[in-house]
Design a binder for these strands. Structure first.
Lengths: 114, 114
DNA sequence: ACGAGATACATAACAACAATATGTAAGCAA
DNA sequence: TTGCTTACATATTGTTGTTATGTATCTCGT
């Protein structure tokens, strides 16, 4: 089975709302977020780590998430992120924007395609 | 009432599927597409012309749409675009990708937000 | 006659951001 | 010791929207 490659632009548009929404469900860290996205999408979305980490840094820089370093028992370092209040507000705005666009697209698809 | 500014990335991700879907309903031209997007979105999406025209040129360059020049009775020139077969296939792929991402987001929003 | 606004298209300069490749480092199993 | 997974990081490159600017015509109000 061939994996549907999510268009680059769509990854860019959905990465922030998706990461914020995942963190709204509790703390997580980069590598785990990659796996969560894969599982939640039923394997249809496959993010690269080279894309994710810069996004996380940007979100932290902008104050939407906060990171803290931790060490696992096996000796691995992890950077756990949690959603800030500002991030929660941004998530709500992103959801509104997303739904405005989605509603418009579904309107078109319902008409032209059945 | 303040207009919700659609995030840049979301505009980038939705412009191609939205333009292709509009043209799937019949020929149109730049200026009219701008108005169609505004109306279809209930005024929530407002595209700039400086964004749209380069996108149309790109879509034509890539063979997804075809343009033809026409002159109205009032003497205005218009470039009408129509969907090509290749464009119709791309629209279907874009729809699949979009729905994969949307389904994942709604899953998250349904859980964390109610 | 004149100005404003809508119609209609185009492009240049700038900034944001993902894809790809590459690097570090540790744990674990064959 | 070879290979895979875990875990994070960044430089280079190309794509693409934003903003500003330019051209040109038509219509309406005064």
């Amino acid at each position: 089975m061939t994996l549907l490659r999510t268009p680059k632009q769509l990854v860019a548009a959905s990465s922030r709302p998706m990461i914020l929404s995942i963190l709204a469900g509790g703390e997580s860290y980069g590598y785990e977020i990659l796996k969560q996205v894969r599982v939640l999408s039923g394997g249809r979305i496959e993010w690269s780590d080279g894309m994710l980490y810069p996004v996380l840094h940007r979100l932290e820089r902008d104050g939407l998430i906060e990171g803290r370093w931790a060490l696992t028992e096996e000796g691995r370092r992890r950077k756990y992120y949690r959603l800030t209040r500002k991030g929660r507000r941004q998530m709500a705005r992103d959801r509104e924007s997303w739904r405005a666009v989605h509603g418009t697209l579904e309107l078109l698809w319902g008409k032209s395609h059945v």
